[in-house]
Amino acid sequence: MRPFTVVSGVALPFYQANVDTDAIIPSRAIREVSKQGLGRFLFANLRYLPGDEIVHPDFVLNRPEYAEACILIGGSNFGCGSSREHAVWALADYGFRAIIAPGFGAIFFRNCINNGLLPAQVTEAQAQELAEGARKEPIKYQLTVNLKTQEIALPSKKVIPFSIDADAQQQLLRGADPIDMTLETVGEDILAFEQKDRKNRPWLHSNPE
């Protein structure tokens, strides 16, 4: 996984509460067995006219000034709803590296971390300010997100702090594979747990392995 350190770029204002993962990627686009190429279906119901071919010119993602956007400014409870990791794969495949919002759906949050996409939490007022800036001067409004210092630098040189859990921050900074980490660091603990559990709850271990 690509480590996340510092990312700079154009911000897409998408400041709406409760943007759900069905909106981020509709169910018709999650029938594939691969993670690749899902960026085409990002926000498909808003981005295209029925048929997924003709783009909706008014939709913010289709406006030329946001063509290079790599940071999304969202509203509260961003990514709520379905657990589909396809939502994060689509955002990442499209080119987004960070989502800044006042709050995230819990499953979506973990999915971001597991794919190197930064979910940066700010206050409602800060999200509103960032979205406003990105709306007013799209090209000039370049943000720099620094994960180590947990800060977002605005074009005005103003700096907005963001929060993220320490474990999530570490995983993103290192770009570490969580499975490798678990097997290396606590493999023995899992075996020890199971040994004890076979005595405590034998009914969960009596099926043939």
């Binding site: 657990s83 589909r84 499953i107 973990r110 999915n111 597991n114 969580p178 678990t182 493999g187």
Partner: peptide, 18 residues
Amino acid sequence: GIGTSEVEHVLATQCLLQ
């Protein structure tokens, strides 16, 4: 409910990180 990366993590380790 979990994401697909977590499905893989549970398959591989029988544990969930949270």
